[in-house]
Design a protein around this nucleic acid. Sequence first.
DNA 1: CTGACCGAGTGGTCTGACCAGCGGGTCATG
DNA 2: CATGACCCGCTGGTCAGACCACTCGGTCAG
Lengths: 207, 207
Amino acid sequence: MLQPVQKSSLATSVYEQIRDLVLSGQLAAGSELPAERQLADTLQVNRSAVREALKRLEQAGLIAIQHGGNTRVLDYRRHAGLDLIVPLVQHDPSRLDDLRAFRAALLPEVARAAAERASADQIDRLEMLAGLLQSDDAEQRRDLASEFWNALIDASGNLAFRLAYNVIRRIEPEGLQPSADDYAELANALAAGDTRGAALATQAMMR
Amino acid sequence: MLQPVQKSSLATSVYEQIRDLVLSGQLAAGSELPAERQLADTLQVNRSAVREALKRLEQAGLIAIQHGGNTRVLDYRRHAGLDLIVPLVQHDPSRLDDLRAFRAALLPEVARAAAERASADQIDRLEMLAGLLQSDDAEQRRDLASEFWNALIDASGNLAFRLAYNVIRRIEPEGLQPSADDYAELANALAAGDTRGAALATQAMMR
DNA sequence: CTGACCGAGTGGTCTGACCAGCGGGTCATG
DNA sequence: CATGACCCGCTGGTCAGACCACTCGGTCAG
């Protein structure tokens, strides 16, 4: 019921504020940011807080900092990484469709890889989870489904799949509620080492 | 021939050093980092440089900082985003296979979306690039291929695809050199709005 | 016209101080 | 003995101010 209180540092506030200005286009790509000292003065925080925020924006691919020169805003569509999809979707929920398409592209291939490389233990765990998904209340089903996909990613043994999944998991697109039978079918294909069947079953679940 | 000189700040050096220790497992997940003041003393840099590095590590999902408590190392397999695949691959080139599989999962779906949504201008540009790829020296072919995929991603209109591609583009997996005919076939499918053909053609190019 | 030089403005680093949160220990109180 | 207030030492968070290093544009002697 109760949730942990959100603590946030000054630098994080500055970071999020400027990040959202860039993502929303209010700070156009190619334009120049005010000098650090001036930003600190405007935002009424210390220059170190501003600096920390700017360095994080640089790491995210949103701005380019140059020693001795001004700081420029970059085009996030060209320079940002997948991590930025999280604030982008929160800023523009219509982008959820993009995320769903991304997930639909990824997970069937994850299932294919898992069918090829999963260990017996991993298969067991996936079958167990699929079984537990048969009958339960909604909340528990959601947790189990999350566990299932998590285990599937592990079974694929692919680190790129894992890291990309870490990002989309932060959003909970909420869509699609595959039936327990769907999960069971996928688990069966995995147990049989049926790569094509696993990919097709997952593909069907993404619709 | 000549390349721009790599400049790097102290904080970046600290960041990369600790990052690589975490990614290589020399700093185990769950262990505690020394205090900021002590790190600054050990690394012989100012505390602000250390702080900046630590905050960037936190943003990358490699460590967890807690006000008043110690800084703990996280399990990057669970908390890091796709961006971390870049240093990971540089650290362990065998992970390139993971990245190739990731790309092979992504690009066919990108082509499918592009076949569905690309504008006439975008199709024209893709056909032109496919044509230019017919005969040229190796270096120019590489640039054109890069341009082609870039244009394809744009044509898909999917921001998640775009951001994910930004990440894998930073690595240049070097593999696979599809023939010009492959590109032409894909461009034809795109022009015809043939979603299935575009996906299949791309899939074939990934092998 | 060329190239050395200078100065203003920018980000980069440093020092040292104080504020704020956490955790363990102490100890009076019930 | 259990409890809870309190203190202390540690941690990270914020601050002010100084100086270093780099870039760029203007100046000016050659």
